[in-house]
Simulated scan of single mutants.
Amino acid sequence: MSRERPRRGTLPPAQENIEKLRKVVEEGNSYGAQQMYKSISARYVSAQRYSEALDILHSGACIQLEHGQVICGAELAVLFVEALVKGKVPYDVEILDRAREIYERFPKVPMALNLAEDDDDDIKQLSEAMGEAKTRVEGCSSFLKAAIKWSAEFGAPKNGSPELNVMLAEYIYSESPEVDIARVSYYFVRGNNPQKFASVLVNFMSKCYPGEDDLAIARAILMYLSLSNLRDANQLFDEIKKQVENQRRDFVESDLIQYITYLLETLERDALPLFNMLKAKYKSSLDRDPVFYELLDDVAEKFYGVRRRNPLQGMQMQGMFGEIFKMMGEMQ
């Protein structure tokens, strides 16, 4: 402690460094400023002046991103979260707002603007645009994943801040050159905005390959249910139908969607036999995506207390009794 106090006294107020570093970035020396942001903030962290370290890193991340320096900005954003962890800063609205301010400065560039004629120059430009998009997504994802982990450890729900999860889902969907809707759904179901999730799914349905639309809807619903969230599963399903209707489009019809409709109704009551019967009856639809069975095992455990089987045992049982279950379903 005796060696720490003089060290703290040698550090000026953070605002002095913030103004100085801002000028360095504005003069075009982003790399030089980056090294200074890292070294100066580290001194404040070492002196346990976490609040000032956070001010410096937050300002640096925002300024670098505003100047299009995604890699530099993302690195400082991650260091901002690391300072939160080192300072054991609790999750609250103020910190969430600061994280949102950083997130909102990550560039958003519609890929459609980069599509042009099929000549060599345009192909090169498209390739570069896709590379830049990948860099943006990786940078923003690194920051938000770290922030979600911090939030879960310091006061947010066990799956992390719902707001941060929605931010990550939105950015992955809007900026990824090739959308992985399952990955997007993973974060949305840990969020708190089924309406926004519905908008993303409706948008995805308008441009996905035939047969992917009902898979995306079913996967999203089952992901919610695997987290015991029947309320948001119903809200998502209703909102998708509403938005499709408002766009004067036909809602997708398939056996899989019919299964989801019946499943949501079944989970409103204590009806494990009906749950199992539906699973058997719609086996051919569920077979379209093996992850459905994993999710349904979670649903059975959460809603009906059914203990999960060993995966190998489950595969063996499915092989032995699959045809019997099918026959039972057809008899209903």
Rank of each mutant, 00 (worst) to 15 (best):
S30P: 04
S228K: 13
T261Q: 10
E101R: 11
E75S: 05
C140F: 06
G191S: 09
N276G: 04
E66S: 04
E153L: 08
E212R: 14
E4Q: 12
G9W: 12
I148T: 01
D92Q: 12
S185L: 09
E117F: 07
E16K: 04
M205E: 05
N159H: 10
Q48G: 06
N203A: 06
E153W: 03
L144G: 02
N159I: 01
E82N: 10
A83H: 08
K283T: 05
I63L: 02
A233Q: 03
V25N: 01
S39K: 06
E163W: 09
P162T: 03
D120H: 08
V166G: 05
K108R: 14
L227W: 03
D121E: 15
G319R: 14
Y262W: 06
R136D: 06
R183S: 12
A74H: 09
N29I: 00
D238Q: 11
S2T: 10
L222G: 01
Q235T: 04
V184Q: 14
V299K: 07
L76H: 06
L115E: 13
D119W: 11
M36E: 11
P107H: 14
L230S: 12
I123F: 06
A169Y: 10
R269N: 11
P177H: 13
L227P: 02
V109P: 07
L215M: 09
Y259A: 01
R98E: 14
L256R: 01
Q34G: 05
A14V: 00
A33F: 04
R105S: 04
R269S: 09
Q34A: 13
F275C: 05
P177L: 13
L267A: 04
S151R: 08
D270E: 15
E170H: 07
R100W: 12
H58R: 11
Y209N: 12
R249E: 14
D250Q: 15
G305E: 12
E175K: 03
R5K: 15
H67Q: 14
N246A: 13
L230F: 08
Y103W: 13
G160E: 07
R43Y: 06
V109S: 10
D120F: 15
V291L: 07
E245I: 06
G68E: 10
L236V: 01
A133Y: 05
Q316M: 11
L227V: 01
D270K: 14
N17Q: 13
I40L: 11
V166S: 14
E128T: 06
E268F: 07
A271P: 07
I257D: 10
